[in-house]
Design a protein around this nucleic acid. Structure first.
Length: 470
RNA sequence: GCUCCCAUCGUCUAGCGGUCAGGACGCUGCCCUCUCAAGGCAGAAACCCGGGUUCAAUUCCCGGUGGGAGCGCCA
């Protein structure tokens, strides 16, 4: 039997980071075994499902590069099929109509809670054996076994046993005839021949119900693997407030998709001491049995470290492509100035995010409009101005504008004047970048180009002449 | 409240009866250095508690404590 996994989000919001991880695990497992990966949109709750959310999920999957082999399938398009199965269960006496009002159910729940009991349906209509009269409101409930137990042989949690007596008869069709979650999942997993269900462990408690329905349908349940939740950095539930919960927020913060993927795969899964995994390596090494059964917390600084790793080691063109998107957001046009790939090369060791890199890259494309006050005061001294003037002339005289030539000029001058390199490099940085931080000065000047460098030095000299130096 | 899940450095984790409890991020110190980084080296830092089982428990079992999830005509 070929492996088939699925990711089945409900479109009520963005693609959650936890969802992204279960999607990744499902994807990896299918790929690893040469199987297929299905995307299914669970939109049976028409109140809360939105098209924007569907698009957000699709966008998130695409950004991460998690390609699905089948789908997206929409449950709302399968209502006829669900109706058919519900009727089948009804006909076979495995489901029944329930006429209890919401008021009665609410009251029942309240009473049970007051008695410190687990709130559950009391089987009031279980043996009525009645079909609704014309216009009469009724839901359909699944006739859950009253005794015995259900064993979930979970690949990450191990054997988990539930007593049927703990379960009640859940509603599988609402009064308006639409099917409910626990039922549609079962029918879809059955119809789509899903072999491995990898999902959040918040679904573990639903699993025995689903298994019972599956059995009533005469189908063997798939293999289940319930992965623990992802908590925020404080060990609390991930929320919009406490750190980013949406995958797209990570894009916006300047993360590379491969960094996010690498981070997520290691959050709850491991392969010995290895930390860095390309997608191909993940596919080759991933196994459900290596998933940790305990929940894990986000470690933002480790994600940052991974991001920097990928910024440093990924193909420059690839990084440049993502960087230009962020530069666009900051209103910097990378067309006028040095090749973006070379800027990426120069900055890759000094940026943890692409947002940071875009900010640092700004001066390559836009001359500084002002000088950082502290840097100016510290480095642009009265004594250094004549040296800068001299350097300006020597740089102007250069016929080949290469890092090497620039380096030689600066070094020679520093030596002649018995100055440390920093004494010249720092004011130069202020002149060309506006701040005292940049890639190595020779690289910076080379990338900027002779014309820009000379004009920026002139500007600083003028500024010093009118505004003064320290 | 009931049912279920979980528990190794601050965090992510390795471990699968005998280890000086390993790695990674972060942190601290040193080196390198034209700035910022990157890099190199060194260091501090963990088996939740109590019972068993065993010659031997971080590891297996039970209980406690502490976290978490579920208990909808939501998914």
């Amino acid at each position: 039997m070929t492996v088939k996994t699925r990711f089945a989000p409900s479109p009520t919001g963005y693609l959650h980071i936890g969802g992204a991880r279960t999607a990744l695990y499902s994807y990896l497992y299918a790929r690893r075994h040469g199987g297929s990966f299905v995307l299914r949109i669970e939109d049976t709750d028409r109140e809360r499902s939105t098209e924007e959310a569907v698009n957000a999920i699709l966008e998130g999957m695409a950004w991460l590069g998690l390609e699905y082999d089948e789908g997206p399938f929409y449950q709302t398009k399968r209502f006829d099929r669900y109706k058919e199965v519900i009727q089948q269960l009804l006909d076979e006496g495995k489901a029944y109509y329930c006429f209890c009002t919401r008021e009665r159910l609410d009251k029942l729940r309240e009473e049970q809670m007051a008695r410190k009991q687990k709130p559950r349906y009391d089987g009031h209509c279980r043996n009525l054996n009645r079909t609704p009269k014309q216009g009469e409101e009724a839901v359909v409930r699944f006739r859950n076994p009253l005794d015995g137990e259900v064993v979930v042989d979970d690949r990450v949690k191990g054997k988990v046993v539930f007593q049927n007596a703990e379960l009640d008869d859940l509603i599988i069709a609402r009064a308006d005839g639409t099917p409910t979650y626990n039922f549609t999942v079962v029918v879809d997993d059955m119809d789509m021949q899903i072999t491995h269900v990898i999902r959040g462990d918040d679904h573990l408690n639903n699993t025995p119900r689903q298994i019972n329905i599956l059995r009533a349908l005469g189908v063997e349940p798939p293999v289940y693997a319930h992965v623990p939740m992802i908590l925020d950095e404080h060990g609390k539930k991930l929320s919009k407030r406490a750190g980013a919960a949406s995958v797209m927020e990570y894009r916006d913060m300047g993360f590379l998709p491969e960094a996010v993927l690498n981070y997520l795969v290691r959050l709850g899964w491991s392969h010995g001491d290895q930390e860095i995994f390309s997608l191909d390596e993940m596919v080759a090494l991933f196994d459900i049995d290596d998933i940790n059964s305990a929940p894990s917390s986000m470690n933002p600084s480790k994600l940052l470290w991974l991001n920097q790793h990928y910024i440093k080691h990924s193909d420059r063109k690839h990084v440049a492509r993502h960087l230009s998107w962020h530069m666009g957001r900051l209103g910097i046009a990378p067309s006028q100035g040095p090749a973006l790939e070379r800027v990426v090369e120069a900055l890759s060791e000094r940026a943890k995010t692409l947002v940071e890199m875009a900010q640092s890259a700004r001066f390559f494309y836009q001359a500084p409009t002002e000088y950082d006050a502290k840097a100016y005061k510290k480095h642009v001294t009265e004594a250094i101005l004549p040296v800068l003037k001299e350097l300006r002339e020597r740089l102007a005289a250069l016929s080949t504008w290469t890092g090497e030539a620039i380096h030689a000029q600066i070094h020679a001058l520093a030596e002649e004047r018995a100055l440390g390199l920093g004494k010249i490099a720092q004011p130069l940085r202020v002149a060309v970048a506006g701040v005292a931080v940049s890639p190595p000065i020779d690289v910076t000047l080379e990338l900027l180009g002779q014309e820009q460098v000379l004009s920026r030095i002139d500007r600083l000299l003028n500024h010093a002449a009118t505004e003064g130096s320290s």
